[in-house]
Write a protein that binds this DNA or RNA. Sequence first.
DNA 1: CCATCACCTTGACCTGAATCAAGTCTGGTA
DNA 2: TACCAGACTTGATTCAGGTCAAGGTGATGG
Lengths: 240, 240
Amino acid sequence: MSASHIPEDVHDRCAHCVGRRLSVCSSIDDCDLAILANESSRMTVADGRSFIEEGAPANDFFVVTGGRVKLFTLLPDGRRQITGFAEGGDFLGLAASTSYAFGAEALGGATLCRFPHAGMQRLTERFPSLEHRLREEASRELALMQARMTLLGRKTARERVATFLIERCQHLEKPDLSHPVELDLPMPRTDIADYLGLTIETVSRILSAFKKEKLISIRSITHITLLMPERISTIAEGME
Amino acid sequence: MSASHIPEDVHDRCAHCVGRRLSVCSSIDDCDLAILANESSRMTVADGRSFIEEGAPANDFFVVTGGRVKLFTLLPDGRRQITGFAEGGDFLGLAASTSYAFGAEALGGATLCRFPHAGMQRLTERFPSLEHRLREEASRELALMQARMTLLGRKTARERVATFLIERCQHLEKPDLSHPVELDLPMPRTDIADYLGLTIETVSRILSAFKKEKLISIRSITHITLLMPERISTIAEGME
DNA sequence: CCATCACCTTGACCTGAATCAAGTCTGGTA
DNA sequence: TACCAGACTTGATTCAGGTCAAGGTGATGG
């Protein structure tokens, strides 16, 4: 598909994409959107389907344009560490030299925009600010991972679950911990456990404990209200 | 200090630096070394002295030109997670947006080359390949962290210590696991423990166990020989 | 040559989270 | 309305690794 055939459509595809607002694509001017669109292609991934294989040759970058995905690494015996959840606007594929350092699969269905490395290179040559934006993105990710290593290496189970809840808050449009917060947890407990380096039973127990302590209320499995967000934040920092 | 005053010295400073061979500085041509030198300054840090404060405004990048440093994050009550060790040629400071996401201190004395962000920006504008090199560096680091999260979240103490030993091997000039390997562990047990998310006692016990199993021999506290590197590597991957 | 101090090792015991094992809840089907 | 399957919760028990408490070791200085 070449930009010269259907320039309007192609332009629009990028113009109305969440990546345009949130992701690396924001470093491209409006008038150059067709070039951007021409180097990328859309794809959808069904719930639970994998689209990045850990260790496979890294040929593409991805922008999540809809839905959610989980990123993970595996040990040979099947133990799994989820290294992150990504949603609309998030950029994937920087954690790779020649091969991907992580696997990725859709969490309840996702749409993605795929940028082959070759095309991305053409884009960075043409738009140097894009390369800078990619570095910024990598830096942001590195800073997040720094905190996550502290979580996995040094926090208690209680602190980990509290941190997870606070992290979810900060993904909302208007994070505000001074009032109760309604949260949607679209991932199953298994994923939360593998993200926090715990077992599903421990996650469940601690959520129940938080409920008993009136820190949260559990409206349904996926729908939780933080009744005392600031107290949970205190627990998350290990200061309770 | 301006390059025009003592161009020869300044040029030489970069020409003979390990960063020139190993680090981001390799993306600059010989003839432009004076420009590079002019944007950077040397510094030495004594054993145990801190030179990056977690949360402080991030104003500089650093290249380790000699010795070693440790990078870490802290919890309010003093729990510490060492997120990495850096040595000659390693680049520091990418894991930061406006403020550093980690602290850093010298491990037995270190020399560094400091690049203020403003100067680095002048360099990346003049040498676009440097910006690309920085992104590569960030990607390499991200891939490493991915593996480290799996270690902290999912590996047993035995697997962690084995992984640490294998990692140290891979820092040698000629990594080769088919024969016994002599290793130097310049960091105290406390640092190894904080790197692996364990206690000093557990690290000590597991090294003793490895010794009893004839997997390693402990010649002195800092000097260890891996007698069966491949078996240790197998343990590290969780496949024993 | 001994004292000191910091760091490391070892042992005994404890505990937080894992494991093992029932339940329970929910949404989908008939 | 009852049944079923999959996901979650809860309880009982175990165990890996932490904590507490002695020792050991080796580099430095008197």
